[in-house]
């Protein structure tokens, strides 16, 4: 890894160098909520001044840019009993993420394992990922954050460069040659011993601020053991089966495929829509049988997939601890509380 230090003013120049190369997506303020707090979201940013790099976790993750909620997989031209299939729209401009937190960078890294791995990499995702440029930025933990428990509080890869705010200047980690070439075009200097110290102090200070922890010790086994636990029913009774947790999750990728005939009866479309395992018909099969007819069975499945099955397959959970699902859940179902309740009487 190559480290540099840049002055705060240089960031705007970096932005200006990147902007012509693709769609710049970054954190912007979207609203003041009922408590008067500033809320942020990712948006396409044309003006560096619109960026809010000092942001809390966004309400919605960055995944929609790479894994759209709705996507046309194919179009058809029909003629009698014959037809022709045309795979869905071509690639758009490269994506440039400016100011992704470690949790969201790690979320893409986890998605890569499924969507780029195995025998069938997902082309739309792969193309966007391949042509993506990521400027990471450090953050301050919020009460809902438990990324540290999920091992996702630091990004080790999946970015081109990563900024840590040292107050007046940024400590820059450079991971790609593309980033190296960019940084060469702005005023950057090699870090000195004092910069190292300030960087270490900043990171150490951040690590003291995590207030929420999840005990993942032996969690795969405990989930297996507690499959019949009554706590699932209690959480299930609260669950709205609304799919919000999946939609705000940066690592959820489940989907549904539907087809629609065109009004002209000469065309048709095949549409992929991100889905949620909490939705009523997620595990329904033809003929009406539903393998998970109850909200608690579905909610339990969600935890089994994220904190057991994925761990068994990839040695890490399908969760970065960003806390979005818990914050967005109107019923107040949060990962730390659910897991603590499943662990229940152990201590």
């Amino acid at each position: 890894m190559i480290f540099k230090v840049i002055d705060r003013e240089e960031l705007g120049r970096l932005f200006a160098l990147l902007a012509p190369l693709g769609r710049v997506i970054g954190p912007v303020e979207i609203a003041r909520d009922r408590r008067g707090e500033h809320r942020h979201g990712f948006a396409e940013v044309a003006d560096f001044e619109a960026l809010c790099l000092d942001y809390g976790t966004t309400a919605l993750p960055a995944k929609a840019y790479v894994l759209p909620y709705r996507e046309r997989l194919a179009a058809f031209r029909l003629g009698g009993q014959d037809w022709e299939k045309v795979p869905g729209p071509d690639q758009e401009r490269p994506l440039i993420f400016f100011g992704l937190h470690a949790c969201d960078i790690n979320a893409f890294n986890k998605l890569d394992k499924v969507l780029l791995g195995g025998a069938y990499p997902v082309p739309g995702y792969a193309a966007r990922r391949r042509e993506m440029f990521v400027v990471g930025s450090d953050c301050q933990p919020r009460p809902a954050c438990f990324c540290r428990s999920m091992g996702a509080d630091t990004a080790r890869h999946g970015f081109d460069l990563f900024l840590t705010d040292l107050g007046g200047s940024y400590f820059v980690e450079i991971l790609s040659s593309a980033a190296f070439n960019l940084v060469r075009k702005i005023a950057a200097r090699d870090p000195e011993e004092d910069d190292h110290r300030r960087y270490r102090r900043r990171v150490a200070e951040k690590n003291t601020r995590f207030t929420t922890q999840v005990d993942t010790t032996d969690l795969t086994k405990i989930l297996d053991l507690e499959f019949q636990s009554e706590v699932w029913q209690q959480w299930g009774a609260r669950c709205l089966s609304c799919g919000t947790c999946a939609n705000v999750c940066p690592t959820c990728y489940c989907y549904t495929v539907s087809e629609q005939a065109g009004l002209d009866l000469q065309s048709a479309r095949k549409i992929k829509t991100l889905y949620s395992c909490n939705l009523v018909d997620f595990a329904a099969v033809a003929g009406g049988h539903n393998f998970r007819p109850t909200s608690h069975a579905r909610l339990k499945y969600r935890y089994y997939h994220k904190h057991r099955g994925f761990v068994e397959a990839y040695e890490e959970p399908l969760c970065v601890g960003c806390g979005r699902c818990g914050e967005s859940c109107l019923a107040g179902i949060t990962v730390p509380e659910v897991i603590a309740s499943v662990r229940g009487g152990e201590s």
């Binding site: 969507l115 195995g118 997902v122 990728y253 489940c254 989907y255 549904t256 495929v257």
Partner: peptide, 8 residues
Amino acid sequence: MGKCCRCN
């Protein structure tokens, strides 16, 4: 193809 999770 191991992506949609519907058959898990």
